[in-house]
Design a protein around this nucleic acid. Structure first.
Lengths: 235, 235
DNA sequence: ATGCAAGTGTAACAACTATCACACATTTTT
DNA sequence: AAAAATGTGTGATAGTTGTTACACTTGCAT
């Protein structure tokens, strides 16, 4: 940090997929003259509530958050966990009804960059690569939501669980096709919330699947014994 | 197919919200030199299947389509009905996993304009207003999907129906706050599919809500008698 | 070591919905 | 006008899940 006007600490967004066109060298060209702010949050803080108006592009610089919906029946549904660095609410900023459809709650101490909407539009014009990444990122979000919808329409808990286990298994297999054991990435309570079901019902079903010989479940460690059996549980 | 620029029939997209920057006069500037094609479909034809790769921006010029998912359990879930003129699959074109998450099926004889992805990107550069409308349109789609998710997490059929009726009622009220009667926009079978439940269960629940005095249901005509009662059914 | 908090296993019961089956009403076709 | 197709009302039964409650385990903090 020596030479000329360089002592300003521009936000480091080098790990954000939407901002990957912004190298450390041209950060100044990007952020210089732009209005923005950063904000710290502690673990458990609420960054935004369902219904809040979304005026900024939020970029999670450090930390992690979860987004969840409170359904009109009082139940909870966890949509996703987002770890730094990623944009938050990128899709809602430009919607005509620009309100958060979810609560955004920090899981760790976090740092958030906030860029006003009109500044984002300026960026689009300045930097076509940024714009295209933004569009792609939003498109991926839509795909993700569609997939979430599809999983939610699986009626039975057994079906949802089988789907989840097969999904996790295929992630493992992409590293090593031999391994049939994995650790669940969430505890039962969280998993139940992401399915929109109750925790006891989930535990019961997990035991059932085990009893039928498709898996072995030890605490949060799952071993798949019979993949075909699992696939049949989807239907 | 005649000499001067005058007689060429450029596609008429004047009713498409994403293309509203394209007035009849500058259609030539917009479409001239662009690669595109149009395609006719008959009622009931399949425009795209779940899993198909999405290479084009589809714009529904005439007709109407529905999009639906086949869940892994074999059940069906209707996502939405889209009437001309609107883009189809606008969000998926730019996703890294650019596959249709839904079946797209025509409800009437339809005409579809197809523009290759790279041409769309060129359009973004030529026409900033087009780009911004595109982003807004996709953002609205994401909002729509989020809302759909929330409705799907309403557990009971009674809750879903109450939500639906209140939604329809508020649409009526936006025209005239005095009217408490509306015609259902779908028949029971379609409504049941959009809820992801069975038709007999839906009919039964509708009768129940009537019995409790919240509504009067005559065939597909609903009269709301007690709004508060309906609101209580959500929880 | 002890106590506490969080996570997990499990049971009994009530509530809800799918499934299947069929009668009846309404609209469209012939 | 009759026949066919579509849409609606309703019943009985079985299966699945929510609810509530409690025992047990594990890891962590005091």
């Amino acid at each position: 940090m020596v030479p000329t006007s360089e002592t300003h600490n521009w936000p480091d967004v080098s790990d954000c997929p939407v901002c990957s066109s912004i190298s450390p060298e041209n950060r100044e060209a990007f952020f210089g003259g732009m209005m923005y702010k950063t904000k710290h949050y502690k673990k458990g803080d609420v960054i935004a509530r369902q219904g809040d108006i979304c005026k900024y592009l939020y970029i999670l610089l450090k930390g992690a958050v979860k987004t969840e919906m409170v359904t009109e029946t009082g139940g909870q549904l966890t949509i996703e966990v987002i770890k730094a660095q990623r944009p938050l609410a990128s899709a809602f900023l430009f919607a005509e009804n620009n309100r958060f459809p979810v609560d955004v709650i920090t899981l760790e101490d976090s740092l958030v960059l906030m860029i006003p909407k009109d500044q984002v539009i300026e960026l689009f014009q300045k930097d076509a690569a940024f714009m295209q990444r933004y569009i792609t990122y939003n498109a991926n979000k839509t795909q993700f939501l569609s997939h979430k919808l599809q999983v939610l329409t699986i009626k039975t808990i057994k079906g949802k669980l089988a789907h989840y286990i097969l999904e996790q298994l295929s992630i493992c297999h992409s590293f090593s096709p031999k391994i049939n054991t994995f650790l669940m990435d969430k505890n039962q309570t969280e998993l139940a919330k992401s399915f929109g079901v109750t925790r006891p019902a989930l535990a019961r079903t997990l035991a059932e699947i085990q009893q039928e010989g498709a898996i072995k479940a030890e605490r949060n460690k799952i071993t798949v014994l019979n993949k075909t059996l699992l696939q049949n549980m989807l239907s």
